[in-house]
């Protein structure tokens, strides 16, 4: 038999292909870095410009300030007041409170729906509810915000008698609606990708379907579920339009979830358009943006870390 003549593989084609793929991966990194660099650059005057430092130093943003002589020192965000006040604390507390309610609302519902869809729903039912929940992710946040502003707020106030119509709970629930599909999708994928062999093993030991879900599938899918929760939290922190419309936008420090709140993202969205370019207020808003960026970055990083730990714990393998 004749020896087969193989064509030598093109070196440069491989080279170009590899470099092109590497470049597209790199461009995302570069874009993220440039965004960060730009946002941070605009906030630098806070640390360098003496006039701006006078008005809004880091000290003033963090610690209690005595804004008027003789009055009690406090944290306050009133950048347009005669005496501009730039305490970030109320905005932080508002952001965290809204995200907390959103997560309390979305995690049980999202994970619960995922368990049902992945474990108990008939195939027909699954094909029905999965797209519908995922469709929720496609609803523009302005629509959710509008819904919360008009319908949900009225309903909640009538039902529970809240003093403030637009409050943390109202904003949190609306925010939760945006978070549910994220948690659901990731958690459901994690559960359906648990190998059938594990379910079979548990069933063959006499476990019923409920026990299989709770003791085998759920623990094995926990890393994925945790990833969904972290992603959802990132969305809850960063989501803007819903909180802007539904939270009342009052920058107050309060432990009560029936008070209005103002979040970091809503503050940036509401104020950046009207701010004097290059002013202290302008820099502070960019500083807020920088912080938001750093937070979400670390949340994702932390999520990744937890994920790795859980994977080792539950699956005994290194990531």
């Amino acid at each position: 038999m004749d020896k087969l003549q193989f064509k030598p593989k093109s070196r440069w084609r491989e080279f170009i292909g590899e470099k092109f793929i590497a470049l597209s991966a790199l461009s995302a990194l570069v874009a993220i870095f440039l965004i960060f660099a730009f946002i941070f650059k605009e906030s630098i005057p806070i640390f360098t410009d003496p006039d701006i430092k006078e008005e809004a130093s880091v000290d003033k943003m963090v610690f209690k300030q005595e804004f008027y002589e003789g009055r009690e020192a406090k944290w306050s965000w009133q950048p347009n007041s005669e005496v501009p006040k730039y305490s970030l604390l109320p905005l932080f507390i508002g952001t965290i409170k809204a995200a907390l309610i959103a997560m309390l609302f979305a995690v049980p519902l999202g994970v619960g729906a995922a368990v049902y869809s992945a474990e108990f729903a008939s195939r027909r039912m699954r094909e029905f509810i999965k797209p519908i929940i995922e469709l929720l992710a496609g609803i523009p946040s302005v629509v959710l915000g509008f819904l919360a502003l008009i319908v949900l707020a009225t309903f909640l106030q009538k039902t529970f008698g809240f003093v403030f119509r637009l409050n943390t709970i109202n904003a949190g629930i609306a925010l939760g609606l945006a978070v549910i599909p994220i948690v659901f999708t990731v958690a459901e994928d994690a559960m359906t990708s648990v190998p059938k062999s594990l379910r079979d093993a548990a069933l063959a030991l006499g476990a019923n379907p409920w026990q299989v879900s709770m003791t085998v599938v759920l623990p094995a899918a926990l890393p994925g579920i945790a990833a969904g929760i972290v992603l959802g939290f990132g969305r809850a922190i960063g989501e803007t339009m819903i909180v802007l419309m539904a939270s009342g936008n009052a920058a107050i420090i309060s432990a009560s979830f029936t008070d209005s709140i103002r979040t970091i993202s809503a503050t940036i969205a509401a104020e950046l358009a009207e701010v004097v370019f290059g002013s202290a207020h302008y820099s502070v808003l960019f500083f807020l943006g920088t912080l938001l960026f750093v937070f979400t970055f670390f949340i994702n990083l932390g999520g990744d870390y937890i994920l790795g730990r859980l994977k080792i714990k539950f699956q005994g393998r290194m990531k």
């Binding site: 063959a204 030991l205 006499g206 476990a207 005994g316």
Partner: peptide
């Protein structure tokens, strides 16, 4: 009627928990 499968399929749990699983669920 217990069963052992073609591909080994231990649970992603400890060795102890694997063996104890059938007892616990029952």
């Amino acid at each position: 009627v217990g069963m052992v499968f073609q591909k080994s399929n231990p649970f992603p749990k400890s060795i102890f928990e694997n063996v104890a699983y059938g007892l616990k669920v029952n």
